[in-house]
Amino acid sequence: MQTETNVTVEKERIVIHTDTSKFDARKSEVNQNVFIENRMTADNIDVYYSDNHAIKNVSLEIRANEVLAIIGPSGCGKSTFLRCLNRINDIIDSCRITGSIKLDGKEIYSSDFDVVELRARVGMVFQKPNPFPKSIYDNVAYGPRLHSLVSSRAETDEIVYSCLERVGLLSEVSDRIQNSGTELSGGQQQRLCIARAIAVQPDVILMDEPCSALDPIATAKIEDLIDELRSQYSIVIVTHSMQQAARVSQRTAYFNLGELIELGDTSQVFTNPNHQLTEDYITGKFG
């Protein structure tokens, strides 16, 4: 059973990622990383939408320079958990959160943590692409201008072009950078949203199924980008593709019905899950 899973993962990896050495290198890096700093820690998180108990007593930590993948069946609360990490759930009236989440040791739900600063430091890419109805340029420049990270047109240009380049969008849109972001295709929009998020240069980036609208080539680009970003940031990525989780993440969390079932090194979760539910899910018995 377990060997079978392994084989599938291997196969998939080979199909999309011909560069196998990279995969191995990444794994060894994790093992060498002796200094494990926790950027964010979530303790005993419960989330309710009115009476719907969406997250049940979840605790996990997000380490510096790691990619944490969250997997689980649809509706199990992955997006909800992610949205707690930058308090974007605050704007939903019916949503109630208990527990504690800390960013660099400071409680983010306490009144003296400025939510604007939090969201600047914890960026987010949403499940559905949501570009502003503004030009591509203004979409990317939005965050840096807000926080006055740029003081001149040249600086803005530099950030906008580099971010578009990093998500592989620059060559596709270079001649229409002043056109509306909503005119792009779904996949391009999603990459634009990623560019917009990294332009703020946050400490932690939350990505909710960033590749669900992308073709394999664009997916590969994003995965490379995630890997590159890891050198500076922490990344939490929700994904429905176990292959993707296996390829990009160092650790994996498996959610089911609002509960955190299993959390561990990606290699361990995929090859040797501790929990029957996890095994059922990754072997495709369920989900």
Binding site: N86, I88, I91, V116, E117, R119, A120, R121, G123, M124, F126, K128, N130, P131, F132, P133, Y142, G143, L146, H147, C193, R196, A197, V200
Partner: peptide
Amino acid sequence: SIREASLACGA
């Protein structure tokens, strides 16, 4: 979703 996007940028 557009509002969420802006808030998530730290606006």
